[in-house]
Design a protein around this nucleic acid. Sequence first.
DNA 1: CCGTGTGAATTAATTCACAGCG
DNA 2: CGCTGTGAATTAATTCACACGG
Lengths: 231, 231
Amino acid sequence: VTRRPVRAPGRSADEASREVPEATVARLPVYLRVLASLVERGVVTISSEAFAQAARVSSAQLRKDLSRLGSYGTRGVGYDVQTLLHHISHAMGVAREIPVVIVGVGSLGHALANYGGLVSRGFRVVGLLDADPRRVGEVLAGVPIRPAAELEAVLAERPVCIAVVATPAGVAQEVCDRLVRAGVTSILNFAPVELEVPPGVDVRKVDLSLELQILAYHVLRRADPPALVTA
Amino acid sequence: VTRRPVRAPGRSADEASREVPEATVARLPVYLRVLASLVERGVVTISSEAFAQAARVSSAQLRKDLSRLGSYGTRGVGYDVQTLLHHISHAMGVAREIPVVIVGVGSLGHALANYGGLVSRGFRVVGLLDADPRRVGEVLAGVPIRPAAELEAVLAERPVCIAVVATPAGVAQEVCDRLVRAGVTSILNFAPVELEVPPGVDVRKVDLSLELQILAYHVLRRADPPALVTA
DNA sequence: CCGTGTGAATTAATTCACAGCG
DNA sequence: CGCTGTGAATTAATTCACACGG
């Protein structure tokens, strides 16, 4: 995952949050998800211990993370699930609906466009683009696929900050350049290439085979020789 | 990403590698990919500076990472692309073909099964499982989709260490439990839940909306009010 | 000379452990 | 009395900066 400087220069000190560490930011969405499921199950209050177990982190880490946002727990009791959900949502800026465009609507792009988790977490797909003329015109989740050539036009009609690149590796950089030129400042990249972006643009990557390779590395270093087939 | 103890107790000291840090392990596949593209472009030698730029890391970090595997560079010159490719491949245990099963063959599962990057990085899909009877029988990348009920049978015929969970969130934990009981020790989880696994089982997760939420967090903390729509 | 390899310094993240509040 | 909130201690990761070898 590429992290670039992108420090906010000096926002008004309205929020309680003073510089939440990156590692914490990466866990907040997990907490949010766990809290949502606790609400569903009717849980009203939860201790850091139980919460941490559900989120698969240590209780100390959970408490430290939460304390960055403020003191929302009750000593001797735990956290009120609703209150906490509210505060983390606020910190993460949910309550807004964030428009995203997806470039590349192959099977992965289809999966993303149809993924309900997007909408439920405050995102809305407002544009779908694909270079394959056979896919153009298809409507996915209420949004028609438009030709990749119209990328600039789509972003002119409807400016967005966040774009998802799900194209083949070969064209990802070019697509990325065009997105950035059209005003996109944050990119989620599924193509297996390292995107080059100007400073100020934020890129995160998701790479399936990279994750598998990391898992495989650990398997190979295990004590017992496992179910592997030599080529 | 869940990292669990999983320290190899005491492998024979055959490899040069003595305890490669986790952060480095996570970058090695990136280096591998960059090297492969350098080979394609006919590059023979590369300096840490140029290599680092292509891999989007600092040159110091790259050199430190590579030095964990041994001294494969030439002072005053740089690294031989082929040599380095060979050594990192070896460290990552490429040269073996690693079997994986995919549980859940929705649009995401389809994308994964058809993803060429798997095969080219030494993985082979040897099993596809889905609970939907309408999908059973379909053949993807040469592998037939079998009913989820046969999970245990599939893993009995052909033991594998690594499984991909691409099911809906609701059944992911159950599938995970069954996989672990059937001998799987490493899981790549695409379902938006925190999987609970016994010690010794390694889980990594890929969560699209989590990544988007992190991007959105940073967008919201930017100086200028961006292209967001209030709900 | 130039660029690798690496100790030393720095910064970030995690864990410990316990004071103090409800 | 139990559990949060948090300084202090620890561990991990990154960056610096330069000695040294080709």
